[in-house]
Design a protein around this nucleic acid. Structure first.
Length: 938
RNA sequence: GCUCAAGUGGCGGAAUUGGUAGACGCGCUGGAUUCAAAAUCCAGUUUCUUCGGAAGUGUGGGUUCGAUUCCCACCUUGAGUACCA
């Protein structure tokens, strides 16, 4: 029987689906193991061969763990809310739900062809109301919580209200907005309900706040930094302005320290942890208060170098700083206003990218140095960002290069406060010197000076030690249609949560997916989008009376809402209507043991998911602190683009091997027109686009047109996309799976080259042949040769180690060597061929199942115990010693392993090749490492 | 600029704790089989070479009996991030 992969693969894919082979049980005595792929967004383009790389790796691992006797959870689903479906809806009028459904069907079809062992019974879709009701539910829990700094955890907001009523907020140590005023218990009781709500909002973990955003009036939407190019929108080129908008935010900054500390306990790559650390951006220093002369205003600055405070010769405020206009003197007013105007037109990214230009304006005002009481001029400059620290710095030109450059540029004095340090050319930012010219800090090193400075500031009441984080609270509102609606209505302008039992609040129908003419989000177009507080249902807007019926929130949630908790949803298999996941399921599965996905999620998804998990833990909703124990980033698979060469100014194309000195213009051609030998299907190319129809082709001597190749990112626009369906069709899923692994280390970027796949395909065919002779199975019960057992156990050892190290590329090589050796040994022994089938099953599951069944087994191979390595088959009596001279291997010598050092040395020195190498010299030294190497020096 | 990766044949890559550099595969060359092709099989394939050998893992140093592996400096490429006070 020939190896017929189409038949075999279809057969087993059906078998697995029918028998629910990979369904995980929530009730098992086995140890659990949870393997997860990062949530895919089902795009309209479908999958290309780069996408499944991580899925194949995680599938191999999941299958391996099943063989090892674990109860494996390996689910899959879709992050199905998102912008592309909405864009498509805007263009075509097609409801995003329909587009999404079609795309998911296509994804599923492609995934099924690759033989993944997913438990599809647990599938989730973020756009499914039954799923997003729990996203809304978590949002409500966040709203009903605040962060207590004493307990270092989230607590119910009701506790806070109790304390407020009793004693006000004087003794509350909680994370809150900066502008909270202090009040007594008596005050609280006298506040109107609306006032109370406004205060509580400043403490809630999700809150409404004015946030500065990039607003594009023409598009009626907010744009992300990377959607803006040169100050105008990437799409359409419309102007973008900085605008304050009232939006929902998440108080992730409350968790900054825990998000930082938590990294130490998880098994992620150092580079990934590093980028999260940078993102969180912890810096320790002090907050210092500078009094503005002749006024009641005070400027707070944050500094990491309080030890250099005597070197502060000026201050710089961000142009947006609240105090700027208040302190500016009349004669500087014009210049300051012009500068602010100029800055507001530059995007934050613009300002940050432009490091070289130094600009700023003097406000005319002076602050008073806290210690020397000397006047310190107050400047504004756009190198200071309003969003970091306090939006103001004390400028120490001798110790900070930017302050130094600024001072030089505007002729501000530079005071040297470092002992024996030359600052005539540059600032000195190192911390390894002694302070000078600084009153009580003189002669102190960095650490002691810092401590002393903070101590003195506190004594003065003008500062304190402070830790600052770069991590900002995350904006949670989107002016979009295709996302989760908020379970929120507005009463008297204050947000009210809809009771949990009325969830989900489903997305309303709109006739267009664009913002309204008034600039409201698309939900502003919905006619039935008001909340009836008596009937507890969504009703027509006509009924809004602000007594019983109120308007609903018009924003929707961002993409990361649904993906911040989906890994918990997979744990629940039966009572999803009642809970987001049951306590029992959560206790059993705990967290994800292995998470595989792209590194583009390093600071977005992975930070938010950690944040929500910590929050849910605080509120006793989940049992764990970190969601992903081990995480691996798979590298990108790059495409090999193909180029044809058009002679400049003509419609003639010249084959790559004929390009001489003439000027040619390379043009991308679709890789599907090119065969494995880089020859172009000229007819197909001509029919591709009308402008090529009449083109002339200069072919080489063999009558072929040869294309050029270049490695680029795999993408539709570069016409270099390779579809996994085509590969499955031509070579089969087992070959595709093994080839993707064979390409190189999982975590590295590597180019896809379809030509190379024949090597792996040949290997699979050789594997099949090993079990067959003249189309019949040849597995025998005969005694196995020592040689074959050695081959088998060598393979078991290597492959097991490789899987544990996620080194899948090397195990494919190992299988090739194994099959080559067994073929040469003419091994037909069941004792070898059965374990081999199990070893290879995680990689090539279809052929493994088929061989397993042909060998007489009724059950699927997927839970057969993994073969055990036995050292005894690898024991050798001899070693082929490499004999080196001065570290260079010159020849090898076969010697028994039980020889002593002296015996080895004797044998080596007697060898005539040794004498030849030495040419009569006497060796200075002979290094003998028994079982390894001999090195002769001299 | 900073942080993190990574530089090995024509190509993808291997060498797990410092111990035979180039495993395995692609491609290429030659051969067998075939009317021919596909498929399959066999042999060869780092470079130079006076055919004895010699050199060789981005560059230059260092440690070591011995370095692709460890240390220092530099170069190149990729990814992330950015005036962070």
């Amino acid at each position: 029987m020939q190896y017929n992969f189409k038949e075999i693969e279809a057969k087993w894919q059906q078998y697995w689906a029918k028998n629910q082979t990979f369904k995980a049980s929530n009730h098992s005595d086995k140890q659990k193991f949870y393997v997860l792929d990062m949530f895919p967004y089902p795009s309209g383009a479908g999958l290309h061969v780069g996408h499944p790389l991580g899925y194949i790796a995680s599938d191999i691992y999941a299958r391996f763990k099943r063989h090892q006797g674990f109860n494996v959870l390996h689910p899959q689903g879709y992050d199905s809310f998102g912008l592309p479906a909405e864009q498509y809806a805007i263009q075509t009028g097609q409801h995003p739900a329909i587009t999404t459904k079609t795309n998911i069907a296509r994804y599923r079809e492609q995934l099924d062809k690759m033989g993944f062992s997913f438990d599809w019974s647990r599938e989730v879709r973020t756009s499914d109301p039954n799923y997003y009701r729990w996203t809304q539910w978590i949002f409500i829990q966040l709203f009903e919580s605040y962060y207590c700094n004493d307990a270092q955890q989230a607590r119910p907001i009701a506790e806070l209200e109790e304390v407020f009523a009793k004693e006000g907020n004087a003794n509350i140590n909680a994370v809150c907005d900066e502008d909270v005023v202090s009040f007594s218990g008596e005050d609280w009781k006298n506040y109107a309900d609306k006032e109370k709500q406004a205060i509580l909002l400043k403490y809630r973990l999700t809150y409404l706040a004015e946030t500065e955003v990039n607003w594009c009036p023409q598009l009626g939407t907010v744009l992300a930094n990377d959607e803006i190019v040169n100050g105008v929108s990437e799409r359409g080129g419309y102007p973008v302005i900085r605008k304050k908008m009232k939006q929902w935010s998440m108080r992730i900054s409350a968790y900054a320290e825990r998000l930082l500390q938590g990294l130490d306990a998880i098994d992620w790559t150092e580079s990934l942890k590093e980028s999260q650390r940078n993102w969180i951006g912890k810096s320790v220093g002090a907050e210092v208060e500078f009094r503005v002369q002749n006024s009641e205003f005070r400027v707070q600055v944050f500094t990491t170098r309080p030890d250099t405070i005597f070197g502060a010769t000026f201050m710089t405020l961000a142009p947006e700083h609240d105090l700027v206009l208040k302190i500016t003197t009349p004669d500087q007013k014009e210049a300051v206003e012009a500068y602010i105007e100029k800055t507001s037109k530059r995007s934050e990214r613009d300002r940050m990218a432009d490091v070289k230009t130094i600009s700023g304006v003097f406000t005319g005002a002076y602050a008073e140095h806290p210690f020397t009481k000397e006047p310190v001029p107050i400047w504004i400059g756009d190198y200071v960002l309003a969003s970091y620290g306090t939006g103001a710095v004390m400028a120490v030109p001798c110790g900070d290069q930017r302050d130094y450059d600024f001072a030089k540029h505007y002729n501000i004095p530079i005071k040297n406060i470092f002992k024996d340090i030359d600052i005539s050319e540059n600032a000195y930012a190192e911390k390894d010197c002694v302070i000078d010219n600084s009153d009580f800090l003189n002669d102190l090193p960095y650490k002691k000076a810092t401590k002393r400075a903070i101590f003195e500031l506190e004594k003065l009441g003008q500062g304190k030690g402070k830790t600052n984080y770069r991590l900002r609270d995350a904006v949670f509102s989107r002016q979009r249609y295709w996302g989760e609606p908020f379970p929120v209505y507005y009463k008297d302008g204050m947000p009210q949560m809809i009771d949990e039992k009325h969830l989900p609040i489903q997305l309303p129908e709109v006739e267009k997916y664009l913002p309204t003419e008034e600039g409201e989000p698309p939900l502003g177009r919905a006619d039935v989008w008001a909340w009836d507080t008596e009937k507890n249902e969504v009703v027509s807007n006509d009924l809004i009376d602000e007594e019983r019926v109120f308007p609903l929130e018009l924003n929707t949630m961002p993409g990361w809402a649904g993906s911040s908790w989906y890994f918990f949803r997979y744990m629940e298999d039966s009572i999803r209507d009642e809970v987001f996941a049951s306590q029992e399921a959560l206790d059993y599965w705990q967290n994800v043991d292995l998470y595989i996905g792209g590194s583009e999620h390093a600071t977005g998804h992975l930070l938010y998911a950690r944040f929500w998990t910590k929050f849910l833990k605080d509120r006793n909703l989940v049992p764990i602190e970190e969601p992903f124990k081990k995480l691996i980033n798979q590298g990108m698979i790059l495409g090999e683009s193909a180029f044809v060469y058009r002679i400049k100014g003509e419609n003639r194309f010249v084959s790559k091997d004929l390009i001489g000195e003439g000027k040619v213009q390379p043009i991308h051609t679709d890789v599907s027109f090119v065969n494995l030998s880089n020859e172009l299907d000229v007819e197909a190319f001509k029919h591709w686009r009308p402008e090529f129809k009449e083109a002339e082709f200069l072919l080489n001597e063999n009558g072929k047109y040869i294309v050029g190749r270049e490695v680029e990112k795999m993408s539709k626009s570069k016409y270099n996309v390779v579809n996994p369906d085509d590969i499955c069709e031509d070579f089969g899923a087992d070959t595709l799976r093994m080839y993707e692994m064979f390409l190189g280390p999982l975590e590295q970027a590597k180019p896809w080259n379809t030509a190379g796949i024949t090597g792996v395909h040949n290997f699979i065919k050789k594997l099949w042949k090993l079990y067959h002779s003249n189309d019949a199975l040849v597995v025998s019960e005969e005694k196995t040769s020592k040689e074959s057992l050695k081959t088998l156990h060598k393979t078991i050892k290597k492959v097991t180690e490789d899987i544990e190290n996620f080194s899948f590329n090397t195990s494919v090589s190992t299988f090739m060597i194994c099959v080559n050796e067994l073929t040469a040994q003419k091994c037909t022994s069941r004792e070898v061929l059965e374990p081999l089938a199990v070893l290879i099953a995680p990689y090539a599951p279809h052929i493994a199942e088929e061989l397993w069944q042909k060998m007489g087994h009724q059950e699927s191979i997927s839970r057969v115990a993994y073969p055990k390595f036995d050292e005894k088959h690898l024991v050798e009596s001899n070693k082929n010693y490499p004999i080196s001279f001065n570290g260079k291997m010159r020849f090898t010598l076969d010697l028994p392993l039980d020889l002593s050092k002296e015996e080895i040395e004797k044998a080596v020195m007697q060898d005539e090749r040794t004498q030849k190498q030495l040419e009569g010299r006497t060796p200075k030294k002979v290094i003998v490492v028994p079982g390894k190497i001999v090195n002769i020096v001299g």
